[in-house]
Structures are given as C-alpha cells and as structure tokens.
Amino acid sequence: MKGYLAFTKKEFVEQIRTYRLLICLSVFFLFGLMSPLLAKLLPEILSGMDLQGMVLAIPEATAMDAYAQFFKNITQMGIIVILLVFGGVISNELTKGTLINILAKGLGRHTVILAKYTAMLVLWTLALAFASLVNHGYTMYMFDTSDISNLLFSLFCLWLFGAFLLSLIILSSVLTGGNFGGLILTVVVLGGLLILDLFPKLEKVNPIYLSSHNLEFLTGALMPADALLPVLVTIALLIGNILVSISLFNHKKL
C-alpha cells in the first residue's frame, strides 16, 4: 500500500513536470469554451455567406447544439489528445529502463500498473469535469438549458468510455514493445470497435455505444436504462484489461 501511494505520487509529479496536466486541462477547457461559441456562431457564419439567391432556413441555435458540439469535440479531438498525452506512459519507462531499479527494490509489478492507471484516471476525470463545468456554464449563459435531461448520466457514459480507453492503452503498452507500439495497438483496437459498431446487433455490447449516443440521452430519446448493458460490458472489459495487463506484466521481461 505504501509503495502504491508513493508510486501514484510520483506519477502525479511526472504529470506536472511533463506538462501533461497543463496540456490536458487547457485543451479540455478550450473544448468546453468553444462548443457553445461554435453553436452560437455557426448560423451567423452561414447567413453571412453569399449564397447567390439560395435561401437557407437555419433554425435558431439551442443548448442542444452547444452540447452536440461539445460531445463531438470530446469524442473526436479529445480522444486524440488523450491518446497522444497518455500513449507513452508505460512504453516510455519500459524503453528507458527506469522501472528496473524500483522493481528490483521490491515494488510489486501490479502496483506499477495500478498506480499508473489511478494517476491517468484522476487526470482524465479532472479534465472532463473541468470541460463539462465550463461548457455548462457558458451554455447556460447563452442558451436556455431547461430542456436538457440526463446530463450527468450522459457525461458519466463519456467518462466511462475514457476510463476504458485508458485501460486499453495500458494493456496495449504491456503487450507491445517500442515507443509507439502501445499507441498504435490502441488505435487499431479502437478502429476495430468502430467497425463492429456498424452492426446494429453488436451495438449494445460495444463500448463505442457510450461515446456515440450521448446526445440522445440529453434529448430524452434514450433513457439511462437503455444503456445498462453497454455500461456493464464496458466496466467488465475495463477490469478485464487491467487484470490481463497485470498478469502479462508479471511475466514480461524488462
């Protein structure tokens, strides 16, 4: 337990020193801020264009548009940022050999995985909470937010998807070698999941569900009960990823 706390603390210090904290928070802050702004400006930009007599009927922007932008930003650019920032968390230490010393001094190998996952999860939670707060604040400032339902559940789905992605990064980094092996394998698996998402029958057992139906929860088209199966499947996969990572890492040659 002592080793776990110490290693987690070391991870937090590393996040600050490598500017991961600064990057994550500022990028997610900008996502939160830009989404309502883009939703507001898009009709004005379109109406400013010279359409040569064509008439475009553009409905007034609503809070839903702001949230549509927000979820689109986080699930596309946000995921890319997460992959870039966390892609090398384990591979770097493996290629540089910095883990050998502390492991030789008796720190359990499972502790390394768990502590790294904890630190990544805390940063992801902070970043997403920050973005959501900023986004909700500005959306309230510009639009009427009274018709939004299930906001917290929708955000929870997004958070859970991110947590699953982080566990996938850890598993891929343990499975592959080299600096970018983990990153590439994660992207490949993510691509596979996206392809599986095309089949309607498999949709509900796919973690992608949690990142592709967020807006439907807000409009009330889907209720939290509809997402019970995807949530359970994702939690199971997440725990499975971590357990497999630990057992593989136990036998990995450093």
């Binding site: 490598t18 990057i23 870039l84």
Partner: peptide
Amino acid sequence: GPILYFTI
C-alpha cells in the same frame, strides 16, 4: 504548436 512540442 505548444501541444505538438510537449507531446512529440
């Protein structure tokens, strides 16, 4: 720019 610098 800064993000690219810090990440890669």
